[in-house]
Amino acid sequence: MIPYIARRLLQGLVVIVLISVITFIVMRLMPGDPAYLLLGEGEIRISAEQIEAIRRRWGLDRPYHEQYLVWGWNLLRGDFGDSLIRTGIPVRQMIFETIPVTAKLNVISLALALAVAIPAGIVAGVRRNSPFDYSTAVGSTLGVALPNFWLGLMLIVLFALYVPRWFGELPLVGRIPPFGLRSWQGYILPVLVLTTEQMAVMTRVMRASTLEVLGQDYVRTAYAKGLPNMTVLVRHAVRNALLPVVTVIGFRVAFILSGTIVVETVFALPGIGRLFTDSVFRLDYQVVQSLVVVLAVLVVAVNLLTDLTYAIIDPRIRIG
């Protein structure tokens, strides 16, 4: 077990270093000089000395490998530097302000998706080729094919335009705002969008693994010794069928974060995804490169965590 953990930790570390190097190189290739952006465009005349001063202040005058080492060392200490464009605000503060929104969105969506997908997948697998199986198949096929930004816009049209026209105010939720997060209702539509895709994928995985487990010999044995249906399902089949779902969650973290970038932009939510796209457009090097590394570290960490969980649950993995 310990050699396995050590090996996986080392691999994760290599990946994180590679990511930071790639990000750093790519960011330096960006067009436009942030020194000019800092001083604002337009009428203001900028003297050569002013630009020089800014370069020195932000370390932009040093050779690239030094810039990387300074940045990397600071990252390790948890210091992400200051935003270049929104002067003076530490990147760490920006990340801490935006992360709760993104975390709430994705944790709620993932929990909802699992709460629906696991039972739906089990039932679809047990009652194979039943009408229920077919309808979940249609649902998950559609769920995977709907682009999240389009689904988001269509939900906005539906809930901000048609629902009030047809039904007036909805009970419990009242008026659902199309954009922003001024009230908790602002979470409803983005959560719906994020849930849809995860739900579709998880239902498929759960159905397939239920089917596979049901074909195993030990399940047949459990039936043969006369255990009731529910006992076999709950105690023998589902437990093992859940394993692939754990892997898929780990595997999908990168996709979930991609989704959040797009969805936060569609709904104008102040999360980490929108901070990211905003910073790209403003050429805010410091923020973009920190965010990419933070996101990638998150992915690597979750992957590692699911791998380890898996190794603990299933002893066969440790040997491989």
């Binding site: 691999q11 990511i19 990168a254 797009v262 790209v280 990419v292 996101l295 990638a296 992915v299």
Partner: peptide, 24 residues
């Protein structure tokens, strides 16, 4: 294998957005 892991660990939209911004 490490390069594959690295590519899979990038949230792909983030990578695409940065690259598209860099290359125009």
């Amino acid at each position: 294998s490490r390069v594959i892991d690295t590519l899979m660990a990038f949230p792909i939209i983030a990578l695409l957005v940065v690259l598209a911004a860099v290359l125009g």
